[in-house]
Every structure is written in structure tokens, then in C-alpha cells.
Design a protein around this nucleic acid. Structure first.
Lengths: 237, 237
DNA sequence: GCCTTGTTGAGGGAAATCCCCCATTGCCGC
DNA sequence: GCGGCAATGGGGGATTTCCCTCAACAAGGC
């Protein structure tokens, strides 16, 4: 335990200074391996589509109980535990238990016994959930110290991975005059048909504008677009 | 340095297990004091309107250069560095430098020289910014290790403080606790069905809550409810 | 006890939104 | 001139939200 904290900090520093995904992976493996974690998952998520998991940066280990034959990417997106990260407010431990009707995942305070256990660490930013890291294994150290240490490392790893892998992509994000106008009326409680009448457009056009707005802001629903646009100063709060 | 990581982890654990603000304060002081930090600030914030700082949990030390005669709460709300936390995506160091036309704050990679320096650590959650912790001093250790260690501790401290201080009372907004929760997730792009799953409710109930929210706020549509609720400070912007 | 409020849930149907594609027009820059 | 983009509009169908009513239960005040 006295080594843990130092190792975690050293790992985080190494990850921050790293220049590639392999550095991150090695650093995490070296730290978490001795603690019983041999399955790793790192992904970015956004509140955009229904399929909220946007990009899988790293998936490794026998998550699938079939030796990895399933398509990792697809599996990850459907994994109940992965998806639970989208609802979580804090890091949490989980257990996969065998039930008569197949496998069941449960969020637990401290996993024990046979089966696969893990730790999920959501990563948040100014706009909410931005990604998560998941670590699992058969016999894991699930103490509070490990949770804190891995939270530090996972958060650092996520930011580093995103910086490295997401670098080229950047978004303009701002709305056009017309789009601000449409969104402004929407925020004022007007329905699409009303806005169309007000602005002298067809309902179809208003709808298209709203879709484009959602796309540009990278959000899934119009209510969310309102919130983001207010945050951006695109429309009045 | 080899002590730092251990001390940080120990501090975080102590804070998590603590049962009062004094425990948190002592823990932070003990860790950060030897690193040169003697001014502390912990507050909750929402990204809603102008006055984004919601509640100051802890302010201590000579932040004001006048020995603390100014109203701490007021000062904190206006402090440029404090406000910068609202725009930050990650922890950052800052420096207060003397300029011909008064004091100036600057965000820097590594503060040095005379003057007051500090570290700001924003804390995020599913709905975006939730609060921040600021630590300052005349001669601070501004290494990457310290940044990481204090990030861990500050994040833990914020969650603990909120849990302890925000538990009993909540704001008098027209919306009930549950309603704010539902509306908050809606503003984060979740659909009714998803919110139902997250909160363990039927879709019907979520729908009923949203209708009641609209009724209470006196608005016609949910997007408008988002805007009004943000304006009222009922949900995070 | 009685009344209010918060929270939960339902049935049934109407309305609105959202999604995929597509096309036209006009403007701007290279 | 040509490519790119904003603005406009459409077809057609799948989801989602919204609206009305009704009901049960727990907690708290009077």
C-alpha cells in the first residue's frame, strides 16, 4: 500500500509525458497488473447519439469470455457495465455473477468471490461525461486506496489518449445567424410550426435547421442543444 | 516527493471517511501546507448564469491582500482566478503579478518569482462544472506531481464537502428535488426512456415529471423549460 | 382524522420531433 | 468555372414527446 500511491503518481506523470498510446498502455498495465487487473478499456463518450460511446481508444484482455472472438468494439458498446458508466457520477466497482438466466452485472461496494470484477471510472468535463476507463480481472484489489489511485491514473490516461488520438479533429462549433435565430425561438417555447410561420419558412426548413444545430453542437436532443448554446453564448440565457 | 503520493492518498482516504468540514480542512492543510499553500478556497458552482458561484464551502487565508477585511464571499465571486475556473477544462496554475495599473492574474505553466501563486482545480460531473478548489501561497511547489496529487485531494474534498454541507437543505427553487434531477438529465441530452432507466423509474413517471415541470415553470415546451430552469439556477447550465 | 404535496405508475391517443435520404438556389473564394 | 457552404424545401417513416385522465401510497401539517 505504501508503494501504491507513489507508483500511481509516477504512472500518471509518465502518462502525461508520454508520446503515444503504447506508453499509456504499458504504464497502466505495470501499475494495475500486480493489483489483479488484466482487462483494460478506455473510450471516449459523448452525449451526442444514442450510441454514446464514441471511440474506443484501447480494449485489451478477455472481456468477452470467449477469448476475444467477438468484435471488441461492438461488444464494448453493448456491455451493460460500460453503459452504466454513462449514468454514473463517480467511480464504482462491479461484479459479473453467474445467474440461472445467464450472466448478470451488478454494481457493488466491494466485489468478492468467484467471477470477473472490475472498476469503472467515468471522466467528466465542462459539458458532462467525456469518456471512461474500465479495468477488470478475476481477483482484483478493490480497496478504497486502489480506487483512488486508479482514478487518478485513469483520468490522466483518458486525457492523454484523447490528446494523442483526437488531435487532428477539432470542431468549429459556432452557429450561423439563422441557426441562432431558430434556436432562440425554440428556447422561447415556440414549436417548429410556429417558428416557421414567424420566420416565413416551411416547417421542414426549421426542422432541418434544428437538426444541423444538434449536429454542430454535437448533442443528441434539442433540450441539450439549448443548454449548450446558452453555455456558448449563442443564445440568451 | 516520495512522500507526496502516499500523503495525498492518505489524505484523500481521510477526507472520504471524514464526518465534518474541519476534518477536510485539517487534512488539506496538513498536506498542502508544507508545499507552500496557505490559502484555501472550496466552492460549488454551476454553469448557469452570471453569478455562477453557488456556495462557498471554505475560504481561508490571506486571499485579499488586506488581511481579510473584505467580505470573503463577495471577493471570491469576483476574483478573476476564481472565475477562470468556470472556463477551464483542467487544473491550472496561476500567478498574480503587479502591473502598473494594479494587479493582474495570469494563467501560467509554472509560476515563479515574487507574488502570490496558486493552483485551481475544477471539479466536473455529469452535468458539467460542479465546483472547484483553489490553493494559493507565496512560494508554492508547482510541480506536475503536486498538481496531480492536489487534484486527487481537491476532487475528493469537493465531493465530501458537498455531501456533508448540501445534504440537509437545498435551494427554494420551484422545482422539487426529483424534478430537478429529471430536468438535469434532460438538459444533458438524455431521452425520457434513458432517464427512466437511470433513475429506476417507469417512462411514464419521467413523462409525468416533465409535464409537471412545464406546468410549474409556466412554459409550453421542454426546451423552454431548460432555458428557464437554467435562468432560475434550478439546473446547471 | 383530514388535507396537501411529492412520487410513483397506468391507458389511450394525438402531436411533434427526429431520421434517413434528396434537390435547388445563391454567395464566396480560388 | 468549380467546389464548398449556408439557406431553403421535400418524401416518407420511425421515435419521441405530449396531453388527458385516473389512481395509489407516504410524509407532513393542522
Amino acid at each position: 500500500m505504501s508503494d501504491l500511491a507513489q507508483a500511481a503518481l509516477r504512472t500518471a506523470l509518465m502518462i502525461e509525458a508520454g508520446d503515444g498510446l503504447p506508453v499509456i498502455q504499458n504504464a497502466v498495465r505495470t501499475l494495475a497488473g500486480p493489483l489483479g487487473y488484466d482487462r483494460f478499456l478506455l473510450f471516449s463518450a459523448s452525449t451526442s447519439h444514442e450510441d454514446r460511446i464514441e471511440r474506443v481508444y484501447w480494449v485489451e484482455g478477455d472481456w468477452f469470455a470467449d477469448g476475444g472472438r467477438a468484435d471488441a468494439d461492438t461488444y464494448v458498446r453493448r456491455c451493460p457495465v460500460t453503459r452504466h458508466a454513462l449514468d454514473a457520477r463517480e467511480p464504482f466497482f462491479w461484479s459479473k455473477v453467474d445467474a440461472p438466466d445467464g450472466e448478470r452485472y451488478r454494481v457493488v461496494r466491494s466485489p468478492r468471490g468467484a467471477g470477473v470484477h472490475g472498476l469503472q471510472i467515468p471522466v467528466f468535463g465542462p459539458l458532462g461525461l467525456e469518456g471512461a476507463m474500465s479495468l477488470g480481472g478475476q481477483r482484483i484489489d478493490a480497496s478504497a486506496s486502489v480506487r483512488l489511485a486508479l482514478t487518478l491514473v485513469a483520468t490522466t490516461a483518458f486525457h492523454a489518449a484523447r490528446r494523442l488520438l483526437e488531435a487532428p479533429a477539432s470542431k468549429p462549433g459556432r452557429l450561423s445567424e439563422r441557426e441562432r435565430e431558430v434556436l432562440g425561438w425554440t428556447a422561447s417555447g415556440r414549436r417548429q410550426a410556429e417558428i416557421a410561420a414567424t420566420l416565413g419558412l416551411s416547417e421542414r426548413t426549421v426542422e432541418n435547421h434544428l437538426r444541423r444545430i444538434r449536429q454542430r453542437l454535437g448533442v443528441a436532443t434539442t433540450p441539450q442543444a439549448i443548454r449548450i448554446a446558452i453555455g456558448n453564448g449563442d443564445i440568451a440565457g
